[in-house]
Nucleic acid binder design. Structure first.
Lengths: 242, 242
DNA sequence: AAGTGGTCTAGACCACGTC
DNA sequence: ACGTGGTCTAGACCACTTT
């Protein structure tokens, strides 16, 4: 039953890979119920425990969500709890409130050196750029500049962004079939330039968090590069080290 | 075999808790080999698979380390790979180099309001304060101010800190029997005050990352509170979001 | 050869949610 | 009552390390 290839991979991992491929191909949509463990066991001709271990890993990676008694579901950014998985911003005091997203601009452009490298594109390839503001309790806290592959986000417009009421990633998921899986953030402290100072209503030179994020979809493919400037007077970036 | 308490907990979790208690009690020292899965199964009167699941979780939480063919070991901060689990600082370009820790000061004090709250002490309880610099390739990058419960770190002196060649946490582990398990970091952007500016050799007002960390040992007990100021000209704080 | 963790199986029963 | 994921068992064999 074991593979004879030089790079040995256990059965449950092969099954996991098959399931990832199915997810990538859109065989089950975000939020949808997938077949039961028994069903998979029959389909692949293995025991339920082996399927279980594959799903365990996918659930640990937040690709699937288990619900006892109900079944296993494809994870979705529609779920409000998914928002703060990528936005690690917490108020210094008081309750965690949901931010309000205000799209400011959205335009087509050609990838520069940096954007091309980050998104795995060639220089000059079409990209989309979005500028947007996040407000907590009416106060501006984050100004984001977001770079997307023009290929995958062809129909993106400012109107579409403004009409969408829930998170950006849920829009990407539902309208463009791109699901964000994981991200890597590089954090620095910088002084506010004029543009950021205006957007956040702070004096120029004010220390801000610069949060540069590369976001990946299935197969570790980069699909978003963004730079956010965070005002950390009343909020901070919370990181749990385990 | 299942507990009859209102808050039901599966067998493997009860075994996990027993193992945590043993670790906390120092039954096996950091780096040491613990008994085999079979041994535990006999000892607790359960099957090997149940012990396995308990150890799986402890390994996922970095309390234990599995090594196929050899056995399972108590995790240790002596391991150089453990260093960057808590220090998420990466050079903008070039290889990751190991920092040099330079203890500057170490003194006894009484806990103020904030330190007491963070460390779970009463105001006025004895604490130890350490100031130290981190240098990468000879350049100052981080200035840390570290607050420790005076109770647990009674014999800590500047001389001891200066004579210790590996990481702080490995010192705490070996000399004071305190093992750091997890931490929570709050990150802000601030302007360098005079003291930080001098230590890092930058102008006053320079934007710096302020990284406030509370570190916990077994049983989620806070034992360290520190504030680090990071110079992010040639390094950045790297955070993987999964 | 012996011991360890790693994988896989088949079957039992429990806890949870829905019909 | 039924189907789902969650726990637990007993036993087999594989992969890795040491003796």
């Amino acid at each position: 039953m074991t593979s004879e290839s030089p790079t040995f991979s256990p059965l449950y991992r092969q099954i996991k890979d098959l399931m990832i491929q199915a997810l990538e191909a859109g065989e089950w949509q975000p939020g949808q119920l997938i077949p039961s463990e028994q069903e998979f066991a029959l389909r692949f001709g293995v025991s339920q425990g082996t399927v279980r271990k594959a799903i365990d890993e996918l659930a640990a990676e937040n690709l699937l969500v288990r619900r006892q008694g109900k079944g296993t579901f494809v994870a979705t950014h529609q779920d409000p709890r998914a928002l703060f998985r990528f936005l690690r911003l917490v108020p210094v005091e008081g309750q965690l409130s949901t931010p309000e997203s205000i799209p400011l601009e959205c335009w087509r452009a050609k990838a520069g050196v940096e954007a091309a490298r980050m998104l795995g594109l060639r220089q000059g390839d079409p990209i989309m750029i979005v500028r947007r503001l996040l407000r907590f309790d009416g106060k501006p806290v984050v100004i984001d500049e977001i770079y997307l592959s023009g290929e995958q986000f062809k129909g993106l417009t400012l109107e579409l962004l403004q009409s969408w009421t829930s998170s950006l990633y849920s829009l990407f998921e539902h309208r463009f079939g791109v699901r964000m899986i994981r991200a890597s953030e590089s954090i620095r402290a910088v002084a506010a330039d004029r543009s950021a100072a205006e957007a956040l209503k702070v004096p120029e030179g004010k220390p801000l968090l610069s949060v540069e994020r590369v976001t990946y979809t299935y197969g570790d493919k980069p699909v978003e590069w963004r730079r956010g400037l965070y005002l950390t007077d009343e909020h901070f970036y919370l990181n749990e080290l385990n």
